[in-house]
Design a protein around this nucleic acid. Sequence first.
RNA 1: UGCCCGGUAGCUCAGUGGCAGAGCAGGUGACUGUUAAUCACUUGGUCGCUGGUUCGAUCCCAGCCCGGGCAGCCA
Length: 510
Amino acid sequence: MPILAQEIARRIGARGSTAGFGPGPRSVSGFASRRQGGLADGLSTMSRTLVKDALNAAAPMDAILLQGWVRTRRDAKAFSFIELNDGSCLKGIQIVADAALPDYAHITKANTGASLEVRGKLVESKGSGQKWEVVATGFTVLGEADVTYPLQKKGHTMEFLREIAHLRPRSNLFGAVFRVRSRLAYAIHQFFQDKGFYYVHTPIVTASDAEGAGDMFRVTTLDLANPPKTEDGAIDHAKDFFGKKTFLTVSGQLEAEIFACALSNVYTFGPTFRAENSHTSRHASEFWMIEPEVAFCDLNGDMDLAEEFVKYLIRDIRSHCPGDLEFFAKFVDKDLLARLDFVLNQPFKRCSYTEAIEILGQSGKTWEHPVSWGDNLQSEHERYLTEEHFKCPVTVYNYPRAIKAFYMRQTDGCAEGRETVAAMDLLVPGIGEIIGGSQREERLDKLRAGMVLHHLDEKNYWWYLDLRRFGTVPHAGFGLGFERMLMFVTGVGNIRDVIPFARTPGTAEF
RNA sequence: UGCCCGGUAGCUCAGUGGCAGAGCAGGUGACUGUUAAUCACUUGGUCGCUGGUUCGAUCCCAGCCCGGGCAGCCA
């Protein structure tokens, strides 16, 4: 985190109006020595000001350099208005270019989508609608954009923009989404680092293939057209790169447990891969997941942490991305801000799986999938609980043992036929499950029994069992879907629209 | 993977078994401290692909491809 903070401080420079990436300090001489402008033949030597900083300026500036992309241009007889956006924030800044400028003839090259460098003065705007504007003293069209530039000033569907994922970050919506994505990632590290958690990098290539989290992508260097065979004709995986079958990870949890049982409080944050043939708005083949793992912690502590975590993230985005959130509230989800604030101000509801089954049974609803103790809660059930019954994020805990993973801690004192494990799912309105977690089975004999129940071979988990042989401790953790959290916080309804370049079945473009 | 909906101009969509439509974008002109500017005129089409029915198919039928929604799987 200190490294991140330093890095960001370095890149942004001293806060205020002169921040930039430009070489050397801002200087009027650099500005003055500049050629008069026109078409691209090099960058200015003057230090650049980001649009964000220009818009937040406290006072006029005699000399300013802006670089960005033209959103729209409105020509008048004697001058032209250009809205310039550089992605530093949602808003663009208005440039006023007088027809008397030496290179004004080139203004027609500054079409929507063109990249532009503008030199001028930051002054209070004469028009309404903005506080500041830049009166250009010169400009350079660095890269033209012809009429085939696909982004228009209005009216694009998400589906269309998805097909031009290389240009959609230049749109208002996706600029906002990816600025929030960046901040959310930062907030995740900040939350855990401030609480004394250590960041663990768990492997992306793994040989563990039975964590019950879904189908896995194979990783191999074998010649698929002519793989090596064993004597009985099967593919000889011993000849593969790692000497065994390997896959892309579906979870870093088991490895995180190793580190929790050494550093006490750890978290992972990295890419995860699922080869499920899922076609829904909330599933992707490649997504990012945060998996905290805490030693000396039970299920209640786990649920507390999950709630504190989710609220922290919402609060952070609420206070650090106000402009982008307002945009989402205006164009994506009218109720967004009210919902986020509501979530912040409520203790999350908690109910056991058994209670949930009772609530669903007494709801008076007719369910497409019948409600029965021992069956998984279906989407319609989860949605009812969080959106209609509790109208609030709700954590459901203690699920039937038979439908949950082998490593989850068996609940003591269950009635015959009603055995549960210490699992929990956090459900939120609109998205459904955003967190899944559990207290892990720390008792060696119970864990081995669980592995038998799930038909797992102990030989593949010898190291996992060792954690219970040597200094075992109660511990717990959960997985938060990064993109699902981002959907919740932005109101964007499709996971493909909160991932820069989404991977879904049949799609790996860009 | 199952069920449902869709594919017509650059974008968003209407439409019909018989000459292919609108709004926006683009172009031209006018006007304007404009800001999704406005007004007039205007360019623009393999109607997803393949096959079938028909005198004639963008329209009806079949198969395929692509996109979306819901469900399952899960985060």
